[in-house]
């Protein structure tokens, strides 16, 4: 038997079957958590916010229309929720170190250190990007969403999404260039 589609699960949930929602959580928890983590940069906070997002989704299930994919609707709610939360909190994001993943053990300690440093620098640049550029870039490059899906999520025309991704990439490139120049100056090259 083929698994139920997202829409079928939603309909089942609207008929009072809460377990159907558990299946939707299982399908989208990593996507939601991942996107939120990139935005808030703190695992605990991302966990709480992701839970809130699923509660919000549950309460608004009857407002979902299958014109868009459920994942699109989910990420739209998640990004809006984080933006609202930030607006309320007006808090600076913290260090990316917590989000760091483990490095391969076959590297020499020196190489591993350099790679770790470079990863942290690039992650920090991404974190420092304004939301209007960061959200489309994370959705496109990390979540592999299409321009159109991102346009649906952030409620902006396709041209604006492309423009923001292009500008975001340029901003990252400029930050990386400046960093390298500083490093070269530091080494006296």
């Amino acid at each position: 038997m083929s698994p139920l589609t997202d829409y079928e699960l939603i309909q089942s949930c609207l008929q009072g079957n809460q377990d159907s929602f558990a299946e939707l959580i299982a399908r989208y928890k990593n996507l939601v958590y991942s996107v939120i983590l990139r935005m808030v940069n703190d695992r605990e906070e991302a966990n709480d916010l992701a839970q809130d997002v699923f509660l919000k989704l549950y309460k608004n299930l009857d407002k979902y229309y299958p014109d868009y994919k459920f994942s699109t609707w989910t990420i739209r709610i998640a990004t809006n929720h984080v933006i609202d939360y930030r607006r309320r909190k007006k808090q600076e994001t913290v260090s990316m170190e917590e989000v760091e993943y483990e490095l391969g053990t076959d590297d020499s300690p020196e190489n591993a250190y350099i790679r770790q440093e470079q990863k942290q620098e690039l992650n920090q640049m991404l974190v420092d990007l304004p939301d209007m550029y960061k959200i489309p870039i994370v959705l496109y490059h990390e979540q592999d969403l299409s321009y159109q899906e991102i346009a649906d999520i952030i409620h902006e025309p396709l041209s604006k999404v492309k423009n923001r991704i292009f500008r975001g990439r340029r901003m990252l490139k400029e930050s990386l260039l400046n960093l390298r120049k500083k490093e070269q100056a530091g080494y006296g090259v």
Binding site: Q18, N47, Q51, H141, E142
Partner: peptide, 18 residues
């Protein structure tokens, strides 16, 4: 950049609230 997995008990915690 790897996809970050949600914590192990995520589903149970959300469902408990739901």
């Amino acid at each position: 950049m790897p996809l970050c997995d949600a914590p192990a008990n995520f589903e149970e915690r959300v469902m408990a609230r739901i």
